[in-house]
Design a protein around this nucleic acid. Structure first.
Lengths: 206, 206, 206, 206
DNA sequence: GATGAATGAGGCTTCATTCAT
DNA sequence: AATGAATGAAGCCTCATTCAT
C-alpha cells in the first residue's frame, strides 16, 4: 500500500526517461483510465504505456485501485485547498460564490482526465472505499453550500430553492463538463467558467 | 433504486414465472447494472436473477451490450416522444421550456435506474455503438436547444450565455440526479423538477 | 435417425421452394461444410440457408453427424457403382485401370464439395462411425488394387512398387484435387483425369 | 503417432518438469491435435497434458491459433531448408528431383504429427492467416516445380503432363501419407520414400 | 528496485439438442 | 410436418496479483 510515492523529477534528461517511475505510472494510468475507463484498462497496458514492468507497478502501488485513489486525491486536495482560500476571503458573498463557482470549473477543465475518471469511477468502487471518498467529497460540498446559505440569510440570494439543491445544480454542470467541453472549442476554460458562474448567480437573484 | 415497475406479473403463478423471459432478463439486468455497474455485473448474475439459463439470454439478446442498448432505447424513446409533444404545444416559449425542463427531470427520476446506467455506461461502449447512441441523444439535445434559442430571439430570455451552454448546464443537473436524489428524501420528483426548471428559467431572465 | 429421406422433387414451381426440405437441407449443409468446415458450421446456419427451422432438420435427420454421413454416402455409392462397372468390363487390364483411374478423378471433380467434406472430415468422426466409413472405403480401395495386381501378374505392369502403395499414390492425388483444382482453370475435369491416369499408367510401365 | 522426439528433457527432475513450458505446451498440443483434430481439442486438454495452467499458455502464445502456427512453422522451415539444399546441388536433374521427392516423404513421415495437423487444419484458419500460410507453402511448391521444368526443358523428362500437375500429383501422395502410413508397417520411411520417388521418376520417363 | 513467469478464478459466448405445442 | 424457446455444457480468453530471482 505504498501510495503517494512521487518523489519529484530527478534532473530529467531530454527523453523524459528520468521522470520517476511512480509519476510515469500515474500519468499513463490517468490517460488510459480517461480514454478507456478503469475496468477496461488492464494493468498490462498501464505498465507498457509507462515503459516499466508489472513488478515495478506493484513495487510502488499496492493495487490497481491504489492508482485510482491517488488520481482522485490529487484533484480533491487541489480543489479543497482553493475553495478554502476563496471562501475565506474578505469580500461580498456574491463575489466569493462567483469566484468559487468559476474556480471549480477552471480546475476541473485543467484536470479534465482526473475529473472524468473521478466522476465515472467513483460509483464502482468497493462500498468501503466509496464511503471514504464520499466523505472527502462531502466536506467540499458543504463548504460550498455554506456560501449559498450565507447569501440567502443576508438576503442577497433568493431562497426559492433549497441551498442543497442549488449546489447540486451547479455541481451537475461541473460533472457534465467532460461530456461536452473540448479544448479546441470556441470558449476558453475561463470563459466557460465565467458563463457557468454567471448562470448560477443569475438563478440566485431574488 | 429499482424505480420503475418490474411488477407487471401478467397472469403469473405464485413465483412470477409467467412474466415473459425477455422482460425478466431486462428487469434483472437493469437492477444489477444500476447497483453494481455494467462491467462489474456478470452475465451469470443476470440469468440467475432472472431465473433462466445463459442460453435463454442469448436466445433473445445478441450480447451483453444488447441488453444495455435496449435499456437505453426504452428511456430515449420515452423522453424524445414527450419532448416533441411538449415543445410543439401552442403556448409561450417560457412555459414550454419550463415544462420540458421539468419533464426531463421527472421522467429521469421515474426511470432512475435506466438513466444512471445510461449516463455512466454510454462512454464505455464500442466506438461504433457509442456514435449511434450519441446521434440519438443529439436529436434530443437539439430540440431542447431550439427552445432556448427561440426565447432568446424573441427577447424573453437573456442572451448572456450561448444557448448551447445553457442546455448543457441544465442537462448537467439532470445527469447528476442519480448522485444525490433519493426516493425517500424530502422532495418529491415533481418538486425537484419544478425547482430545477425554475433555476433554469431564472438564470435566463434578461 | 431417419436418414435418406429425399423423396424427390415434387413438381417444383419456379422459385425452388418446392424442392423437398430434406434435399434443401442437404444442399445447404454440403455448401457450408465445404466452405467453412464441419465443426465451424452451426446447425443454425444450415437451417437458415435452407430456409427452414431447427425442428425441421431434426425431423428428417437424427443429428448433425447424420447429414455428414448422408453426404458421404451419396459419393461413395456413386463411385463404387461406377468402379464395379468399369472393372468388370471385357477389356485389357491397362485400359480398365486407365478408365477407372480417370473416372474417380472426374466424379471427384464433379462432386468436389462432397469429396472435400469427405476427405477433411472423415478423421474427426467418432471412432465408431469412423470404422464404419473406413470399411466402405476399403471395399473401393481393394477393388482398385485388384486391377493393379492383375496387371502385375500378367506382366503388363511393373512390380517395382507394391500394388498397395501404387493405389495410395493415385488416391493421394485424388484427395489432393480440392487443394488446387479450380473449375475456371485451364484444364477440364476430363483433361485432368486423363493426365493423372496417364501418369499412373506411365509409372507402372515395366 | 507421436513421431518426433518430445524427449529432450534438459536436465530434468524425475517428472520432466524441467522441460521449458513453451516446449511442453507445443508437444502436448501437437500430440492432441494429431490425435483428435484441432477443433476437437480444447485448450483445457492441452494445458492439462502439459501440466500447466491456462494462464501460462496465454503467457507464451497469443491464442490457440498461434500454437498451430508454430507447429506449421517448424515443419515448413525444415522442409524448405532441405529442399533449397538438395535442389542447389551439383548433380543431374533426375538425381536432384529424385532426392528431393524422397526427402519430402522422409521428413513428412518423421514429423507425421506436424504434417497431418498441417494438411488437415490449414483450410480452416481465418482467411488472413490462411493466405499467409499459403504464401509460404507456395514458395516450396515453386522450387519443386522448377526442378521438373528444368528436366523437361533438357529433354530428360516427358512433357506429356504440365509440370504444375506433376508436382501436385506427387504432393498429393505426400499429403496422403497420414492416411495409410503406419510406423509399424512393412516399409521403412526411406523405403516408402524411394518407392514414391521412383513412381514419380518413372511417370516422367519420356 | 525491478523482473516476468505463472496462477486461478472468472468472463462472455456458442452450440447441438430437446420438447411442448 | 414443423416450430422456436430453452437447456446445459463446454469453449476460448483475460486479468489482477504473487513470488522466486
Amino acid at each position: 500500500m505504498r501510495t503517494r510515492a512521487d518523489t519529484d523529477t530527478t534532473g530529467g534528461t531530454e527523453d523524459g526517461s528520468a521522470v520517476p517511475v511512480p509519476r510515469r505510472l500515474l500519468a499513463a494510468a490517468t490517460r488510459l483510465f480517461a480514454e478507456q475507463g478503469y475496468d477496461r484498462t488492464s494493468v498490462q497496458e498501464i505498465v507498457e504505456a509507462a515503459g516499466v514492468t508489472k513488478g515495478a507497478l506493484y513495487h510502488y502501488f499496492g493495487s490497481k485501485d491504489d492508482l485510482l485513489h491517488e488520481i482522485y486525491g490529487r484533484l480533491l486536495r487541489l480543489q479543497q485547498e482553493r475553495l478554502d482560500l476563496l471562501a475565506g476571503r474578505d469580500a461580498p458573498v456574491e463575489q466569493r460564490l462567483r469566484e468559487a463557482a468559476a474556480d471549480v470549473v477552471v480546475t476541473t477543465i485543467d484536470n479534465l482526465d482526473d475529473a472524468m475518471i473521478f466522476f465515472r469511477t467513483m460509483h464502482q468502487l468497493s462500498p468501503e472505499k466509496q464511503r471514504q471518498v464520499r466523505a472527502e467529497r462531502r466536506r467540499y460540498h458543504e463548504r460550498f453550500r455554506a456560501l449559498v446559505e450565507e447569501g440567502q440569510r443576508s438576503g442577497v440570494f433568493s431562497t426559492a430553492a433549497p441551498a442543497e439543491l442549488v449546489v447540486d445544480y451547479h455541481f451537475g454542470s461541473v460533472h457534465h463538463l467532460g461530456s461536452w467541453y473540448r479544448p479546441d472549442g470556441r470558449l476558453s476554460p475561463q470563459q466557460v467558467a465565467d458563463h457557468l458562474a454567471d448562470l448560477l448567480l443569475r438563478s440566485l437573484r431574488p
